[in-house]
């Protein structure tokens, strides 16, 4: 069973990539590489994609082309928002404790 509350880093990066625009697997990989300089392996990428699809956070768009793009669902968007808010709380607290704020 997919644990909806838990996010691994690749899943979060994939959701953020799809929040911008619909992308197919390799395009997601390239976006993550260009944006964060993180090279996701194909096994890691599709492991995360399968989990996200099972959780209902992303879905594939039917296409005539060989490469099928993925899109963020409403549930995925809500979940990403929630995750980012949690990350913001953590960074704000960390910054305060470090005296940066």
């Amino acid at each position: 069973m997919v644990k909806k509350g838990k996010f691994s880093e690749p899943s979060l990066l994939i959701l953020i990539s799809l929040a911008e625009t619909n992308r197919h697997g390799y395009a997601i990989m390239e976006d993550i590489q260009q944006t964060y300089a993180i090279q996701l392996g194909p096994g890691t990428l599709y492991g995360a994609i399968s989990r996200l699809e099972k959780a209902g956070y992303i879905r594939v768009i039917e296409s005539e082309e060989r490469k099928k793009p993925y899109t963020l669902t409403k549930a995925g968007s809500e979940h990403l928002t929630q995750q980012i808010e949690e990350l913001q709380k953590i960074t704000t607290l960390g910054s305060k404790r470090l005296g940066l704020l």
Partner: peptide, 26 residues
């Protein structure tokens, strides 16, 4: 479900030892 897509991605990345290890973990 994902075999064909994964194959396409590996065609782009090539099959280095790092990719093989990543696939085995996958």
């Amino acid at each position: 479900r994902y075999g064909e897509e994964l194959e396409q991605v590996v065609e782009h990345t090539g099959l280095s030892s790092k990719i093989i290890i990543d696939l085995l973990l996958g």
